[in-house]
Simulated assay, not measured.
Amino acid sequence: MFKGIEFDGKHSYKDFGLTISNPDIGIPSKIKNTERVPHSNVEYDFSSIYGGQEYEERTLTYTFNLAYREKAEYFYLYEAEALRWLMTPNEKKVLKDDRIPGYYFLAEVMTSGNEFKFVGGTLTVSFKAYPFMIAELREGNDIWDEFNFLLDYAQDTTFDISGTKEVTLYNPGVSIVYPKIVTTAGMKVTKGNTTYNISTGTTESYDFFLVPGENKINISGTGNISFEFYKELI
């Protein structure tokens, strides 16, 4: 089976018979916030002042091979069919690349261009995407067959609390993540010098985040609490 991409629920080869050449998922650029001390050669970098490095959106580029079968003008019909699929979404949609199993991008088509020749033709499409590829499986899963010894980290993300307990959550990605917190009772979660009051049920907030690497947390209360998050990689 030819490898391809799945975008907005449809696959380039399985649904359209398109093969791909020259795939390029790009690398996002860092956003640097620097200030130079006047009359000196010293420059300070404030890019990670809030705990993580920011990145520009990345560009994904794929060249689809549109081979016509009967008449030369059919190339444009195949192109129209492919463009209808690719250009219809007006927001970022899930894009899965068969070459990178277990991860997906959030992307939207921004530009396209074709090249028509007597022996066939190509359609090159560029997507603007969220900077990181996102894991399909959440951290703390116990699916051993999917474990990757290079990229994954075995850890607990669900805890039974009775009183106060210190736990460690490890963010194996390169970006700050904002976990969904699910509790069976109200609890206090302390990270660093900040304490968060977590209500019963599901809590999602940009106030509470995990930096890349180790995050030590103190939890006070009685009940069960879980942190649901997904690693994000370059």
Rank of each mutant, 00 (worst) to 15 (best):
S47G: 11
I219W: 10
F7S: 01
S48I: 12
G186S: 01
N114H: 15
P89W: 03
S226Q: 00
F116A: 13
T63P: 07
R138C: 13
E115G: 10
I5A: 05
D145E: 14
D207T: 02
L86A: 03
E35I: 13
T194M: 03
F229W: 01
T202G: 06
L123V: 03
L106P: 04
G173E: 07
K165S: 11
S112M: 12
K32F: 08
S126L: 07
T124Q: 05
V177A: 07
E232V: 06
S40G: 05
T195Y: 09
R84N: 11
Y44R: 14
G26T: 09
Q53I: 06
P131R: 04
T194L: 04
S47Q: 11
D98P: 07
N148Q: 09
E228K: 01
L106D: 06
D152Y: 03
P38N: 09
S226F: 08
Y74A: 15
E146W: 10
H11L: 05
S162N: 13
F46W: 12
K191E: 11
S126H: 06
A185I: 06
V37T: 09
L151H: 10
N114Y: 14
E6R: 07
V167Y: 03
K71A: 14
R99I: 12
T63I: 09
Y50M: 15
I225R: 04
T184M: 05
A135Y: 13
T184Q: 00
T203I: 08
S47K: 09
L169N: 05
V189T: 01
K10L: 13
N218G: 06
T202Q: 09
G9M: 14
L233Y: 10
F149T: 14
G201I: 05
D98I: 06
P179R: 05
N22C: 01
F2T: 15
S226H: 06
F127Y: 00
P212D: 00
G223Y: 00
Y55M: 00
S199C: 02
D145G: 12
N141I: 01
K96M: 11
Y230S: 06
L233A: 08
S12L: 07
Y196W: 01
D160P: 12
M1I: 10
G221E: 05
E204T: 12
I25D: 14
K117E: 15
F75Y: 14
Y44D: 12
D98K: 03
P179A: 02
F116N: 13
N215K: 07
N114W: 14
M87N: 15
T19P: 04
V177N: 02
I25V: 15
G102E: 13
Y178R: 11
F105H: 03
S226D: 01
A154S: 10
V174E: 10
D152H: 07
L66H: 11
T122Y: 10
A185G: 01
W144I: 13
F159S: 10
K231S: 01
V174N: 09
D160F: 13
I219K: 06
V167W: 04
Y178H: 12
K180Y: 11
A185W: 02
I134N: 12
Y13T: 13
S226M: 01
K3A: 14
F208D: 03
G173W: 08
K96C: 11
T200R: 07
L66T: 10
I176K: 08
R69P: 14
L60F: 09
L210T: 08
F7W: 06
D24N: 04
L106S: 04
